[in-house]
């Protein structure tokens, strides 16, 4: 438990990618997600991969670390690949293993879909690796800003997000602390029957809930004491600014889009 980490936990740094305006990063990822589905040739996939790998390289986050962070989703990627390989029955038969035939189309589709999947996860995790949760919420609040016109509670939503994000690490620490305390009192979280293990969770969950509620109450009180009253007329401590690097990013991305449509078959 002590060595656990969250997928895509922020890693402080000062790279090109770190310095980008979070709004740009989110917008670009949004469009990247869309254009990934337009790729249909080896070259076009190559371009997308180049963009993703190039971004990873400029973020100066060790590739081994990115891969390690993706560990939990490797399973999904491989599963998708196998599913397509087995289910698709088009094109020529490539090989036949134990009477089960593998078709050419299956291989191609499996590879394409799992590559798409992989690219998407890679760029989104790059976002969280290089952007603090606070920056992400600020950016989302700004990007959703126009929705305020239709009375959508953008500020409240952003506040909820930033509070939850703020307390995830705290909650993880607390979980670790309490499970250690209960383990010292003889609770065994690892072995035993299913029923035993469910029972072992109660001494962990009760204190967690108690402290989470207590925290929420304290936070609400502290906010009220300091005169918090919602989004109207509130100014920001950290203003977001578009800079030169953002312009470079947009140029790169436009080039990518053009390249993609040229290499589509």
């Amino acid at each position: 438990m002590s060595n656990s980490m969250i997928i895509g936990q922020y890693i402080p740094g000062d790279s090109f990618v770190h310095r980008l305006d979070p709004r740009s990063k989110i917008a670009i990822i949004f469009f990247f997600v869309i254009i990934v589905f337009f790729a249909n040739s080896v070259m076009s996939y190559g371009l997308l991969a180049l963009f993703a790998i190039g971004s990873a390289a400029t973020s100066r986050i060790p590739l081994t670390y990115i891969m390690k962070g993706l560990k939990p989703v490797w399973f999904l990627v491989i599963f998708t690949f196998l599913l397509h390989l087995i289910v698709t029955k088009q094109g020529e038969v490539l090989v036949s293993i134990l009477g089960w035939e593998i078709y050419e189309e299956g291989l191609i589709q499996g590879a394409a879909i799992s590559l798409r999947f992989f690219l998407l996860i890679m760029v989104t995790s790059l976002l969280t690796f290089t952007t603090t949760p606070i920056e992400i919420t600020d950016a989302i609040e700004e990007l959703l800003g126009p929705l305020k016109k239709v009375n959508f509670p953008v500020h409240e939503l952003a506040l909820m997000m930033s509070i939850s994000l703020r307390f995830i690490p705290t909650l993880m620490q607390e979980t670790e602390k309490i499970s250690k305390a209960q383990a010292s009192r003889g609770v065994d979280f690892r072995t035993g029957s299913f029923k035993d293990r469910v029972k072992a969770v109660i001494p962990l969950l009760v204190p967690l809930f108690v402290s989470a509620f207590k925290r929420a109450e304290e936070l609400a009180m502290a906010m009220e004491a300091r005169g918090y009253q919602g989004g109207e007329g509130r100014t920001k401590l950290r203003e977001l600014h578009l800079g030169k690097s953002d312009v470079y990013l947009y140029i790169m991305f436009i080039l990518l889009v053009i390249g993609l449509f040229l290499t589509r078959s």
């Binding site: 309490i178 305390a181 010292s184 009192r185 109660i202 001494p203 009760v206």
Partner: peptide, 20 residues
């Protein structure tokens, strides 16, 4: 580990958080 934990009692920092 089980036997060890029976022999070694640990009072943690702020142990009241473990009550349930």
């Amino acid at each position: 580990l089980r036997n060890l934990r029976e022999q070694v009692g640990v009072v943690f920092q702020y142990p009241e958080h473990q009550l349930f």
